[in-house]
Design a binder for these strands. Structure first.
Length: 802
RNA sequence: GCCGGAAUGGCGGAAUUGGCAGACGCCCCGGACUUAAAAUCCGGUGAGGUUAACCCCUCGUGCCGGUUCAAGCCCGGCUUCCGGCACCA
């Protein structure tokens, strides 16, 4: 037959929908006795542009895996939803005057129709939309639970602020000093910020990595993100005061090498002792200078150190009693450690550069480098260090130093994280309202649980206020309320949550998307969790995944979910680049629209191509002519119904090998070689001229996860029972996957001198006899002494001669 | 700077984890079919040498060296590219 995909694909998509074959069975329902398989893909942000080929690649992997698992008898949950809060929708709404709700609905409808056109085997009865009140009710519920457990706090802070989006961004959203959404330069602004105390979970997030199946690089990225370091807090005395200047260091054993201290310009002790600081005017100037720089600028200026000595203030080394000068410099950040450091210029390059510039003494305490040239950060024998002299092992000397500090009451061992608490508010309309009420008498009061959801008020204008305040602040009916605690007049918080909120728990809601009593029925959570396999992009490995692991671990701690880790296994797809090998982007004009491919070649071809184009985890450029190659493959398959004939032993064996390869390769995400194996098999069928019906039946089912429409059509033509998508996965006979004859390589002294057909499993002596009797090998062996024979069964025979 | 990963034909990529490098697909070339083209089918296709032809030989997985009967794969030293983090004390 011809692959008349325009008719065929519609036909089978409506059959699947009518028969609801992709619906997952909840516990207690028929089908739930099968082993469960929960396959999760990152739900899309429904942009107006519709789906991108990247979406297709991201979803196709688990689409194929879960289709196969379904055919193998699993109860599969493969759901889809929409992460629909966020700036692009809101900006579009502001520009066009449409309500964000209407924009969202339109975009979701578009995505839904496109996903269906590609034929993804999704359970459409479980669609989740983060912007629906039924959903964000529970996002708010989780926030309140966190509030209740002290994981939410508010602080005034210098924040990353995007002047273009008029919104406060987390560190994660403003990397490299650019806004993640619009790429404008970030400025620093003082704001009231809501924080989630994610640092409280830093250790749990780190430890949990031991029990999950993520690729090493993903684990490593999360480990780096959390950035745990072990060291010590040391309290330096401040001369002529009772004050302690507290610092954090990873090398407390270098205390004897401390020649100055550095505080961050914002350090509070500077204000406290401003009266003692003789050059306070200059200090203020320096501080103003620093405040002008963004954090990005500060961290970029890693060449030239700036700073200033605090005249009149000095610190006392707790181990030596020595007087040490104190500086301020912007290479020390208020946001890490204690905002102050002990500087050991001999063994820290930054301190070294600073010391050189300001003419400060450099004392070597670890032997092994040339501290005149640069700081030495390596290992070596401790010198000039009192009781630490002679230590050569870093671990021992650190332990000994901490011991001494603790004995003196001058410090203690401690741990620091690079990860910071999560700035959790945005001054925007299209997000979940933060369910908190500010009462002049009671302070911050949570909205009572029974009043959830706290819905967004209806508005016509969504632009943020000029002072960067949330548009919700302009709705008096929303803002003014009664305090739930004292009944007095109070005001609602008007900030909304960041886009990461809704995506931090959506996979839980899929298990029970319509529940009105709790975020999901505990029975259903218990049945479905954890997610067995989660696939998505590398770009979400640190933020989204760490956030959602944090929320999940919190929910586990309060007994709301049954597992402490949400995702048992995580994989990531590689990017699809444009045909020019560059990242696809509108400005480059190299974007490929997946729907164009569906219209020209059909969904089966699109699906097959994105998985065939290369190693699934690596980036690969789009190639339109390779799409044609896949189209040819599908056509060649479609024509097999006209080639049915008698079984041929060689072909049957090939079929079994092919089925084995496809079965194994799908599970290890080697989709390209699985497809290649089926292509080879079809080439063999064309060579042989015919294929038997059983083999065609097996091939059809093996190809079905990749190209389900044409396979359904083929299945019907060859009289398959029911729908191919739920037919049993083809079995293979292990005995038929091995040949009874093998062609082995024959080498003399490691050089290939020919091949030899031998009965499979032949022993060394028998093979040697065959080689010795073959005239074609004689010239290489004549007159030589055999020193060594190496035989790798069914593969290779190497004769070493002299 | 630090942490990951990669480098294989004209191109995307295979290679049972130390055992015939280049599967499969694209591109290109030739043939069949066709009035013709497209489509389709069949064949060829790493480089060089040799041969009338079949054969055959040599070289070849970023670079230099090593281990081994045998290295794309292991070890040591580089180069380049990609991703992440980055004045983190």
């Amino acid at each position: 037959m011809k692959n008349d995909f325009r008719t065929i694909e519609k036909k089978w998509q409506s059959r699947w929908e009518a028969e609801q074959i992709f619906r997952a069975a909840d516990p207690g329902e028929p089908g739930s006795e099968k082993p469960k398989f929960y396959a999760l893909v990152e739900f899309p942000y429904p942009s107006g542009a519709g789906m991108h080929v990247g979406h297709i690649k991201a979803y196709s992997s688990l689409e194929v895996i879960s289709r196969k698992r379904r055919m193998q008898g699993y109860n599969v949950l493969f759901p889809m939803g929409f992460d629909a809060f966020g700036l692009p929708t809101e900006n579009y709404a502001i520009k066009t005057g449409m309500h964000p709700r209407a924009v969202t609905d339109k975009n979701i409808a578009k995505f839904t129709s496109q996903l269906k056109q590609v034929g993804f085997a999704l359970d459409w009865s479980r669609v989740v939309d983060t912007t629906e009140t039924d959903y964000y009710k529970w996002t708010q519920w989780i926030f309140l639970k966190m509030f209740e457990h002290g994981l939410v706090f508010r602080d005034t802070a210098l924040v990353n602020y995007c002047p273009n989006c008029k919104v406060v961004l987390s560190n994660e959203d403003s990397q490299g000093g650019k806004c993640d959404v619009c790429h404008s330069d970030i400025i620093q602004k003082s704001k009231d910020v809501w924080y989630l105390r994610i640092t409280e979970y830093a250790d749990k997030l780190l430890k949990g990595l031991d029990e999950v199946d993520y690729p090493g690089n993903i684990k490593q990225q999360q480990i780096n993100w959390i950035g745990r370091s072990e060291g010590a807090f040391v309290n330096f005395g401040l001369k002529d005061t009772e004050e302690k200047l507290r610092i954090y260091t990873t090398r407390p054993d270098t205390l004897f090498g401390v020649t100055f201290m550095v505080m961050a310009p914002e350090h509070p002790l500077i204000d406290k002792y401003s009266a003692r600081i003789a050059n306070m005017a200059a200090v203020e100037d320096y501080r103003r200078e620093c405040a002008k720089k963004t954090e990005f600028d500060r961290t970029q200026m890693n060449k030239d150190k700036t700073g200033l000595k605090l005249e009149g203030l000095s610190a006392i080394n707790p181990l030596t009693g020595r007087k040490i000068p104190v500086y301020i410099a912007d290479y020390v950040m208020m946001g890490y450690g204690t905002g102050a450091i002990m500087a050991v210029p001999a063994h820290d390059q930054r301190d070294w550069e600073f010391a050189k510039k300001f003419g400060i003494e450099i004392i070597e305490v670890i032997k092994g480098g040339d501290i005149e040239k640069e700081a030495y950060a390596g290992d070596g024998e401790m010198v000039n260090s009192g009781f630490l002299n002679g230590f050569t092992n870093k671990k021992d000397s650190i332990r000994r130093a901490i011991e001494e500090l603790e004995k003196l009451g001058a410090g203690e061992g401690g741990v620091q994280y690079k990860m910071k608490d999560w700035a959790f508010n945005r001054q925007r309309y299209w997000g979940e309202p933060i369910p908190i009420i500010h009462c002049p008498r009671c302070g911050m009061v949570p909205v009572p649980y029974e009043e959830l959801p706290l819905c967004l008020p209806e508005m016509k204008e969504f632009a943020p206020g000029t002072g960067g305040e949330s548009p919700l602040a302009r709705v008096p009916e929303f803002v003014n309320c009664k305090c739930p605690r004292c009944g007095g007049e109070a005001k609602r918080e008007t900030d909304t949550m960041p886009q990461w909120a809704g995506s931090s728990w959506y996979f839980l809601r899929y298990t029970d998307p319509h529940n009105d009593e709790c975020l999901a029925d505990p029975e259903k959570l218990k049945y479905w969790l954890p997610v067995d396999w989660y696939n998505g992009g590398m770009e979400h490995v640190t933020r989204h995944m760490i956030y959602s692991r944090f929320w999940h671990k919190f929910l586990y701690d309060i007994g709301a979910v049954p597992t402490d880790e949400p995702y048992a296994k995580r994989t990531a797809q590689g990017l699809i680049l444009g045909p020019d090998g560059e990242k696809m982007s509108k400005s480059r004009g190299n974007v490929v629209d997946p729907l164009d491919v569906v219209n020209e070649f059909g969904a089966d071809v699109l699906r097959t191509y994105v998985l065939f184009m290369g190693d699934y985890g690596s980036a690969a450029p789009w190639s339109q002519s390779s799409v044609r190659g896949c189209s040819r493959f599908i056509e060649r398959f479609a024509a097999l119904d006209g080639m049915i004939g008698k079984p041929q032993d060689k072909l049957v064996r090939s079929l079994h090998k092919t089925v084995k390869k496809v079965t194994e390769d799908i599970e290890s995400m080697k989709f390209n070689t699985a497809i290649a194996a089926m292509m080879s098999f079809i080439n063999e069928v064309y060579d042989a001229g015919s294929i038997d019906k059983d083999s065609l039946s097996a091939l059809t089912r093996a190809l079905c996860p990749f190209a389900p429409h044409i396979c359904e059509e083929m299945w019907e033509r060859i009289g398959g029972k029911g729908l191919c998508s739920v037919a049993p996965w083809p079995e293979y006979d292990e005995a038929l996957t091995v040949d009874d004859e093998k062609e082995i390589a024959v080498q003399v002294c490691g050089r290939l001198r020919g091949t030899l057909l031998i009965p499979a499993g032949s022993e060394e002596d028998a093979v040697w006899e065959m080689i010795a009797s073959k005239p074609e090998f004689a010239p290489f062996l004549e007159g030589k002494t055999v020193i060594k024979k190496i035989y790798v069964k069914d593969r290779l025979f190497n004769v070493v001669v002299k």
